[in-house]
Simulated scan of single mutants.
Amino acid sequence: MHFSGLILASLATGAVAAPTSNVFNDVYNFDSNLEEFYSRVSAHIGRYANGPSSTPDMSKVSLPSSSLPAPTGTLKYVAVGRGTQNYTCADSTADAVPTLIGAVANLYDASCVAANFPDLLDLITDIVLNYSLPSANVQTSMPPANLDLLGHHYFETATEPAFNLNTTPDKQLGIALTAKRNSTAAPSGSVPGQFNVGYGAVPWLYLTSVTGTTDGYTAVYRVKTAGGAAPSTCAGQPAAFQVQYSGQYFIYA
């Protein structure tokens, strides 16, 4: 499902009917970001009487500015990732430091949002961190923007992040196996964790493809991260634990 005029209309209806009392705000986690999202959706309604194009013009999409190397390929997809960063601890004392052992996330297709409604993309990325963690096996779209499942992110080996876009027999978009080439700290002010509580946002990354990649994918950028960082020490932590995060993935070929 694309982020179409029909979806905009349905979201605007939700915006009009959004809960306003503190009691309902608590029940529905209706925070200021979600309020801003619905407000902006309502503002977009009049721009697209027949709905925006269902085929996103990716030439209009720009990678967020950072110190990471500039992209050289053609942008194919923009995805919102929602999952966990996974860590281990040698022991549960302050002398040990958590070790990152990978990540697992669902990737949701935000290409149309990035091309047609760029002002909504960052809001969506922050908002979804406060939603329940999705199951990897569920094909349902992701609220609040009803983004379709694009694929799955996991680690093929300890050093090879994978982006598998083959989700169904009829939706075979290929696999990007990658290696980290560069990273930079998430900007100051990034969302530190769920409901704005946590240890910080994981770094932004520049990944390039390695052997095993299909369909011509060349690079993946992880940007606009929210949450995911581990505590500074293992004090009180189990041997293995997860920290929830969200982020944007720009996939190039």
Rank of each mutant, 00 (worst) to 15 (best):
L34A: 02
H44T: 11
L100P: 12
S42C: 00
S67Q: 15
Y77H: 14
L100W: 09
A70T: 15
N33D: 13
G51N: 01
S66H: 03
A90T: 13
A79G: 15
T74Y: 06
T88S: 02
T72D: 10
A94M: 10
V41R: 09
S54I: 06
S53L: 04
D95L: 15
T99F: 01
A79P: 13
A49F: 11
S92D: 01
D91H: 10
N29C: 14
Q85N: 13
P52Y: 02
S59Q: 06
G83E: 00
A49N: 07
S62W: 06
S92R: 00
V80T: 08
G73P: 01
G83C: 09
S42P: 00
P69I: 15
T74Q: 15
N50H: 02
Y77C: 04
F37E: 04
N50C: 03
A90S: 14
E35M: 10
I101C: 07
V41Q: 08
Y77A: 07
T72I: 11
K60S: 15
A90N: 05
A94V: 11
T88Q: 12
G46I: 01
V97T: 15
G81Q: 08
T74R: 11
S59C: 02
Y38K: 04
N33W: 06
T72E: 12
N33E: 08
S67N: 08
L68M: 10
H44R: 12
T72H: 03
S54R: 08
V78Y: 07
N86F: 01
H44E: 14
S67K: 05
Y87T: 13
S53W: 08
Y38I: 01
K76Q: 15
D31M: 07
G81F: 07
Y48M: 00
P64E: 01
T74P: 06
P98Y: 05
P98H: 02
S62I: 14
G46Q: 00
S92T: 03
S53P: 00
G73W: 06
Y38G: 00
R47W: 05
G83M: 04
T88C: 06
L100F: 13
T74F: 10
F37C: 03
F37H: 02
L63T: 14
Y48D: 13
R82A: 13
S65I: 14
S66C: 02
I45D: 03
K60V: 12
S54G: 06
Y77R: 12
S67I: 07
S66G: 07
S32H: 05
P98K: 00
S66Y: 02
V78E: 05
I101Y: 14
T93L: 06
L63C: 13
S42G: 00
A94P: 01
S59F: 05
F37K: 00
R47C: 01
S53E: 06
N29W: 10
S42L: 05
Y38R: 09
P56M: 09
T74I: 15
L100T: 05
G83L: 12
P56E: 05
L34S: 02
L75N: 14
L75S: 11
G83F: 14
D91V: 04
L100C: 05
I45Q: 11
L100A: 13
